[in-house]
Write a protein that binds this DNA or RNA. Structure first.
Length: 488
RNA sequence: GGUCCCAUCGUCUAGUGGCCCAGGACGCUGGCCUCUCACGCCGGAAACAGGGGUUCGAGUCCCCUUGGGAUCACCA
């Protein structure tokens, strides 16, 4: 098999928004494909009529696109092996099921759910592994006729061949199963819809997948899928099973741990590129890079990830999803974004403000002054709030902390006078003038002086550079706020 | 419970028998910078789950124990 033949896929079921686990699997598939000059395919597995919803298909599209994981073939862009929605491939599965029926690998099963339950309960009681009795395998024509008349609609079951099965997993190594312990299983439901294990195999064969990279929750499905490949005489793809992503409490990542959908993270203000970078490092590490400092060697663009990615550097164990590193990384990306670009990304979070009162240049100055501590874009809303509106609210807490000292009144009234002559247009100059003011206020401590002015002007005990604050606010608002603070 | 997978700092991990009294990043922490928060810079604490082997030598190979995870559907 040449490198050009590499074809991988991500096959989410649209029964919810794109989950971070699925997103990470998609990423690894994407990186593997791109690194090897292969194709990355998107297939929607919507055979669960009950739970599938078109709105989730849209969410999957949007999330994948936001992450920059563009697919070469998929429901919207098409491809040589479509349709890329399972619900539109029903005829195909039917044909394959027919083949299996003819070759004797599969048979009709008329058992009712109740009968099956009873068998399982019995096995449970005897503490034996449940194996279907196969009683429907050798039904006489009369019995079939009777069941039909009763109105029973059969499922199609695949007969599990008994063998010692080994497959070589590209991440886990050899994985072995004894199929004698595995029951015959349904491949076509009574409603005519194929089950997952059957549909994936048919699709992966038809779509010529070379590698199946997925979560290790699928390991136990693998032997069932392999025997279908064999029954169909098809070439078996290479498997690679990724460890799970766990929540900090070491259980499966779920809603109760907070956000689990990629779209939620993005809406909260995580940059897609930071999120992708973080996800890539959950289970994979770059080989040592001599072109960069160790301290930033984990910061990688999509192109770098593609360049360095390989399956043999993927960890075989589970990984815990901790926010600390994601937060740091997101902040790092925010800090390093060119200002105009950052402004663009910040706009959705600044909608409540009248940005037109400032020039583009002033906005950029403002953004640069508040961006350092941002962890998420959404935090910008609060971080710039005091640059807007005339008066500000000063909470009792702030008043207590920064404006309650005896000298505060003096500092503020002196500053009110001083502010008449500030050069508001020139931030550098303001810094110098602020220095002069601090000297003027001696022996009061510089910190105390600045603390009071900051609190009066911003209602905060910390925030943007005071030169920037004063410059952007301008004389009118500075005076207004100082006077309001004096009269507090 | 059966079957399968996994096991290095709190977390993500480097490590493929000697280069490791175990390296990096995040977090934590001490200091510097400083008008605040932060950023940045310099330093620190912090791990090979336990027990047996194999070997001149084991974090690295084998076995057992323990722990964690996954899976046992007419869901995917």
């Amino acid at each position: 098999m040449t490198f050009n033949d590499i074809r991988v896929r991500i096959a989410p079921s649209p029964s919810g928004n794109l989950h971070v686990g699925t997103a990470r699997t998609a990423l690894f598939n994407y990186l593997f494909a791109k690194h090897n000059n292969g194709k990355f395919v998107l297939r929607i597995e919507d055979t669960d009529l009950e739970r599938s919803d078109e709105k989730y298909v849209q969410n999957i599209f949007d999330s994948l696109k936001a992450m920059g994981l563009d697919w070469d073939e998929g429901p919207d862009v098409g491809g040589d092996y479509g349709s890329y929605k399972q619900s539109e491939r029903l005829e195909l599965y039917k044909n394959y099921a027919e083949k299996l029926l003819e070759s004797g690998h599969a048979y009709y099963c008329y058992c009712t759910p109740e009968e099956l339950e009873a068998e399982k309960a019995l096995a449970q009681e005897e503490k034996k592994t449940y194996l279907y009795s196969k009683k429907c395998k050798k039904l006489s024509p009369e019995q079939v006729e009777n069941f039909r008349n009763e109105g029973r609609v059969p499922t199609i079951k695949f007969e599990m061949p008994v063998k010692h099965l080994i497959f070589k997993d590209l991440i886990k190594g050899n994985v072995e199963f004894d199929t004698a312990l595995m029951s015959d299983f349904v491949i076509v439901k009574s409603n005519g819809i194929p089950t997952y294990n059957f549909a994936v195999v048919v699709d992966d064969i038809e779509m010529k997948m070379s590698h199946i990279i997925r979560g290790e929750d699928h390991i136990s499905n693998t032997p069932r899928q392999i025997v279908i490949y064999e029954a169909l005489g098809a070439e078996i793809p290479q498997f690679a099973h990724l460890g799970m992503i766990l929540a900090p409490d070491r259980t499966k990542l779920s809603k109760r741990h907070g956000a689990t959908a990629v779209s939620e993270f993005i809406n909260e203000g995580y940059l897609p590129e930071a999120f992708v970078n973080f996800l890539a490092l959950l289970g994979w590490t770059s080989p040592e890079r001599k072109d960069v400092e160790a301290s930033t060697s984990e910061i990688m663009s999509k192109d770098e990830l593609i360049k360095y990615f390989s399956l043999d550097r993927v960890s075989s164990s589970n990984a815990i999803f901790e926010f600390d590193k994601l937060n740091w990384m997101n902040g790092f990306y925010i800090r390093h974004l060119p200002t105009p670009e950052l402004f663009e990304r910040l706009k959705p979070y600044l909608q409540d403000y009248d940005l037109s009162i400032y020039s583009e240049e002033q906005i950029e100055t403002m953004i640069n002054a508040v961006k350092e501590p941002l962890v998420k874009l959404s935090e910008a809303t609060d971080a710039v709030s005091y640059f807007f509106g005339n008066s500000i609210n000063i909470s009792g807490e702030i008043k207590e902390a920064a404006l309650s000292a005896e000298e505060t009144g003096d500092i503020l009234s002196e500053f009110a006078k001083f502010s008449e002559n500030i050069d508001y247009e020139n931030i550098e100059k303001i810094h110098e003038q602020l220095g002069e003011f601090r000297t003027q206020m001696k022996p009061l401590k510089p910190k105390q002086v600045m603390w009071a002015i900051r609190a009066a002007l911003t209602g905060r005990t910390h925030g943007a550079d005071m030169g920037v604050v004063i410059s952007l606010l301008g004389k009118k608002k500075v005076l207004l706020r100082i006077n309001e603070a004096i009269n507090l």
